[in-house]
Write a protein that binds this DNA or RNA. Structure first.
Length: 444
RNA sequence: GCGACUGUAGCUCAGGGGUAGAGCACUCGGUUGUGGUCCGAGCUGUCGUGGGUUCGAUUCCCAUCAGUCGCCCCA
């Protein structure tokens, strides 16, 4: 037996696995997300874990980010390769889904989607190769009102408020402001992309570094870089913004922003929950208007926990219909791992049950099982300790797993038709008639 | 793709050319039906893998694999 070779159980980097008490926390957060998404009228869909490679690469995503599928061995006359790969986000599958089912969907289409995605990246702190994304998107047919851009952060606000993980801030911007402002400065389009990327790092690397990046990597003149920096760090009230540029694209951005802010106020979004931050650019270049990024105010090192934006034509690679959309994604796995690391979330019980029925005397096992059955029928999650061990060990088990109550049934209780109900946290014990046990547990 | 660091008990880690140790965890006990504290006893290892140097390697060297943390990019 000792000589039997073992396969060493080892973690695979970037594929997190939670312990039961951690998974319970994840499920609780998933429940909050799902409930709030539905509260705003988003309906769940699920797409396959795999897509055809040509679907995933249509948007110019780097191929090394994508895990492709192959079989370990090929059958007769065929190769091991397939044309399938694991999806790396939920936006591309949704675009394909919407184009594919266009005729049977009703627009504006509001869906939410909570699934794992896979990315062929090098893992590091808070960065995984398998993780949950929790997406909402609203997709219009031909057009989509800016009121939708306002509703998205309101949903996110509801989610994070209920999660109670500390103060958070939803930072918003509109890409047309940056792009229009740069057009006004005479910055060429291909340089603007590099400039947006440099700007996005502002609060990470600081003003001086961004200025030098704007000059060296985006090729902006010193004057253009200075004016861009002054704009981005300048006043963000709508009147100031309106005066800051005359480019048509810029003015369109101001108008959209005005509509979004009006919508936020009308929807009852608290002013302190969001801010207009002109440095938010977001890396993905399919965003064309509003962009969002959410951070925990007291833990900026955690980084963005939720981000998204508006795209003018979501499914252009799959259909000739014009389908504008706006959406956002919560990176739940990153959020969870960082909240655990920061001690902002502390795992609780290791069991889904609240009551452990102990077995003191094996000859009375049937009694114990009957009590458990009655509790379960009343909707109280209950476990029976089935191993022949001493009562002390059974209580130790109850303590370690985090049950709230233990039920003890010995000779005295059996004779009197009662049980002893012990509250583990306090050690308090009460003698309760069996017929009152459900009521006693429901009250506490 | 680039760089730095780390692989020794279930976990966190110490050690060091003569086949290994601590703390925690775990198991049992401290008599009858009571957990979290305390005390006692016990169990646990191909020292990541392969090769080289050596009388001898877990220890030194090389390679490899794995992991952690940065950069890039992003959730």
């Amino acid at each position: 037996m000792a000589d039997r070779p073992l396969v060493k159980p080892a973690p695979i980097s970037g594929f997190p696995e939670w312990l039961p008490e951690e998974k319970r926390v994840e499920d609780r957060l998933l429940g909050i997300i799902r409930r709030n998404f539905e509260l705003f009228g988003f309906t769940a869909i699920e797409t396959a874990a795999v897509e055809r490679k040509e679907v995933l690469t249509a948007k110019g995503v780097e191929a090394k980010e994508i895990y492709a599928l192959s079989r370990l061995a090929a059958g007769e006359g065929e190769g091991p390769d397939t044309d399938m790969a694991l999806h790396f986000d939920l936006t591309v599958p949704t675009a394909r889904y919407v184009a594919q089912h266009f005729g049977r969907l009703t627009f504006p289409f509001r869906r939410y989607q909570i699934q794992k995605v896979w990315r062929g990246e090098r893992p590091q702190a808070g960065r995984f190769r398998e993780f949950y994304q929790c997406d909402i998107d609203i997709i219009g047919n031909g057009s989509l009102s800016a009121l939708n851009d306002a509703e998205i952060p309101v949903v996110i606000h509801a989610v994070f408020t209920e999660m109670a993980i500390g103060r958070f801030l939803i930072r918003m911007n509109n890409r047309k402001l940056l792009q229009g402002f740069m057009a006004g400065l005479g910055v060429a389009r291909e340089r603007a992309v590099a400039a947006l990327r440099a700007l996005d790092a502002l609060d990470k690397v600081g003003r001086d570094k961004v200025l030098s990046d704007l000059a060296e990597q985006a090729g902006l003149s010193a004057e253009a870089a200075d004016r861009l920096m002054a704009f981005v760090t300048g006043p963000t009230d709508l009147d100031s913004l309106s005066r800051a540029g005359v480019d048509p694209l810029y003015q369109q951005g101001v108008a959209e922003m005005r509509e979004v802010i009006g919508g936020l106020d009308a929807l009852g979004m608290p002013r302190e929950a969001w801010t207009l931050d002109l440095s938010i650019a977001r890396g993905l270049d399919y965003y064309t208007g509003t962009v969002y990024e959410t951070v925990l105010v007291d833990h900026p090192q955690i980084g963005s926990i939720c981000s998204g934006g508006r795209y003018e034509n979501l499914a252009e690679t799959f259909t000739r219909h014009t389908l504008p959309g706006v959406g956002i994604s919560i990176g739940l796995t990153r959020l969870l791992s960082r909240l655990f690391d920061a001690g902002l979330l502390i795992p609780g019980p290791k069991t889904a049950a609240t009551v452990l029925v102990t077995v003191m005397d094996r000859s009375r096992l049937a009694d114990c099982l009957a009590v458990a059955a009655r509790l379960r029928a009343a909707g109280i999650a209950t476990e029976v300790f089935a191993e022949p061990k001493k009562i002390g060990q059974q209580l130790k088990y109850a303590d370690q797993k985090g049950f709230r109550h233990a039920v003890l049934i010995g000779a005295e209780e059996a004779a009197a038709g009662t049980v002893t109900l012990k509250t583990l946290a306090t050690g308090e014990q009460a003698t309760v008639p069996r017929t009152d046990l459900v009521a006693a547990l429901t009250l506490t």
